[in-house]
């Protein structure tokens, strides 16, 4: 159970060159184990930079990153320990696969942690299980797998380190709906069992709305909004200024409300939308019968 916190963090790339870029600008935010935090923002808003700050791949130009109240850069030589505690799965993680079998690839992280023998085997099998990879797939070459399977193998490689904090950058991007379901389903199951802190970065409103208890919106390197999904989606205007949009199903309910068919627009997942609409239909047909 860990809490990770950014305090007034600024990151500047290429300082002093014509390409100087302020990727993050005075960002303060805290991620705790009590919720899944969704980080959303337009391309170039600083999401990925923020992700790399959390496990010490990026060093803040100013400000501090605290893991359970301790500055992760207090002992720079031991930064690799932080990387085992904060697992980060990059965007398109399948491009990092390199071993000759899926099993070996998943074992790369835990092996680097110093695990071996039965403990290593256990970590690999458990991680593969969460990601829906079983039996014969583990002995295959990662390059023989389908896109969705590759993605799951790569994410399993991070989960296998059993990190206290799991950061996922666009875990479902570029996959077909079935692949998305498998990945996200596995991750939610993982979260349910391990109860650790989870941060999902995405620019898909649908994904974020479905999986997070808390949402932070980044825009131009600053925290634009943060709050529960209800709070965020209630202020659609402010969301639009960060070039973002409401989830499709919420938009549908906004339109329905305009036509005075429903009262609330606090619907963020398709499942909830279906429930509301079917009860609405029942209600209407009941009225017609009466």
């Amino acid at each position: 159970m860990s809490c990770i916190e950014l305090k007034n963090v600024t990151v500047v790339y290429g300082a002093g060159t014509p390409f100087e870029k302020r990727a993050l600008d005075g960002v303060s935010i805290s991620f705790g184990e009590d919720r899944v935090v969704g980080l959303i923002g337009h391309t170039g808003s600083g999401k990925s930079t923020l992700a790399m700050l959390l496990n010490g791949l990026n060093k803040p130009t100013e400000g501090t990153v605290l893991l359970d109240g301790e500055d992760i850069w207090a002992r720079p030589k031991e930064i690799s320990k932080i990387r085992f505690r904060v697992g980060l799965a990059f965007q398109y993680p399948e491009y990092q696969l390199f071993e000759d079998s899926v099993y070996k690839d998943i074992a790369f992280g835990p092996k680097n942690m110093g695990l071996s023998g039965a403990a290593l085997d256990e970590a690999v099998i458990a991680a593969a299980d969460f990601c829906g990879l079983s039996g014969d797939i583990l002995s295959k070459s990662p390059f023989e797998l389908s896109g969705g399977q590759k993605r799951r193998a790569a994410i399993a490689g991070v989960i296998a380190m059993n990190p206290d904090v799991l950061v996922l950058d666009e875990p479902a991007a570029g996959l077909d709906p079935a692949g998305r379901e498998e990945i996200i389903g596995g991750l939610l199951q993982y979260r349910k069992e391990r109860r650790n802190t989870m941060i999902i970065i995405s620019h898909s409103m649908e994904d974020i709305a479905r999986y997070s208890d808390y949402i932070a919106v980044l825009d131009h390197g600053k925290i634009h909004m943060q709050g529960t999904p209800a709070e965020i989606f209630a202020d659609a205007e402010k969301l639009f200024t960060a070039s973002l949009d409401l989830p499709q199903v919420t938009k549908l309910f906004v339109e329905l409300k305009k036509r005075a068919l429903v009262e609330g627009t606090d619907v963020y997942t398709v499942k909830e939308g279906v429930r509301r609409i079917s009860s609405l239909i029942k209600q209407k047909t009941g009225e017609a019968d009466a």
Binding site: R83, F90, Y95, Q96
Partner: peptide, 13 residues
Amino acid sequence: DKIMSAQKARGAD
């Protein structure tokens, strides 16, 4: 750069 970061994130030294 990306691949190096990804492997470092998995503890590559």
